[in-house]
Amino acid sequence: MNGPVIHDAQTLPVNDNVNPYAFSVDLNGQWFLQKGKMVAYFGQIAFHGIGHGPLDRIIQASFHSPLHAQDWVVAEGHGRMVLADRAFDVNSYDLEEGNLTVRSGNLLAFEPSLALKQSIIPGFVTLIGTGKFVAASNGPVVFAEPPIRVDPQALVGWADCPSPCHHYDHQYMRGVLGGVRMLTGFGGASGEEHQFEFVGAGTVLLQSSERLMEERPTGTPPDEAGVPQGGTPSTTANQPSTPRLPGQLGDLQRRFGL
């Protein structure tokens, strides 16, 4: 029998996966992490809450919506740090002068050289620039080329292609079966009448399951005419998950399953 691989402070991977569910960061400076995703570390690392103290400058450069910053911490120092998220699959991605939009709940950590912005699409955030980030998914991530239509719950994110749109199966909705269903309520839906459609050049990231990861608030865009979801919590996009309301305990509440 082969024993398990034993890692120490030197042999932990440098900015690479330890196994499909854990990622090791070779920290030499700063990284942004979602709260609760660090499972172990070697070395001298300090964790700071975001939004106060000496780090304001870097936060200004990397965070462009103050309202979701409460879910993030800055890891600062030197050492190896292992990140994981509830045994979901974890992958790192390199951006080179690029942009990638990802579901807010799937993003675990990113280098400060990237800028994190709220996407126009509610519930998503966009990373812009050059650097590495780590994202989780329910099951391994599959990369697909447009044109493709995707179950909304299976979508993790997309890079480059600026054309995410809704697609409805009109043949079904207007067809005989749809009519029968409207008249009798009998027959049901296939569950696939609506998809996200991507066309053009780019890459679409899919997770291997239609089970969503828990959404993280991305902050509320200003309540202006012409701003999608302006003034309403973005988490209600098409999510079964409950948005965080004032007076709720947020993370603590989630952790205790309240």
């Binding site: 398990p4 691989v5 034993i6 890692h7 120490d8 402070a9 932990l12 330890v18 196994n19 499909p20 569910y21 854990a22 660090m38 499972v39 172990a40 570390y41 070697f42 070395g43 690392i45 292992v82 994981a84 509830r86 045994a87």
Partner: peptide, 22 residues
């Protein structure tokens, strides 16, 4: 373990900090 466990060696020179839940 929930997900493949990671085995980490602790030496007197390299102490380790771990999340209690992990």
């Amino acid at each position: 373990s929930d997900g493949t466990a990671i085995v980490l060696r602790v030496t007197p020179q390299t102490p380790l900090s771990v999340d209690p839940g992990a």
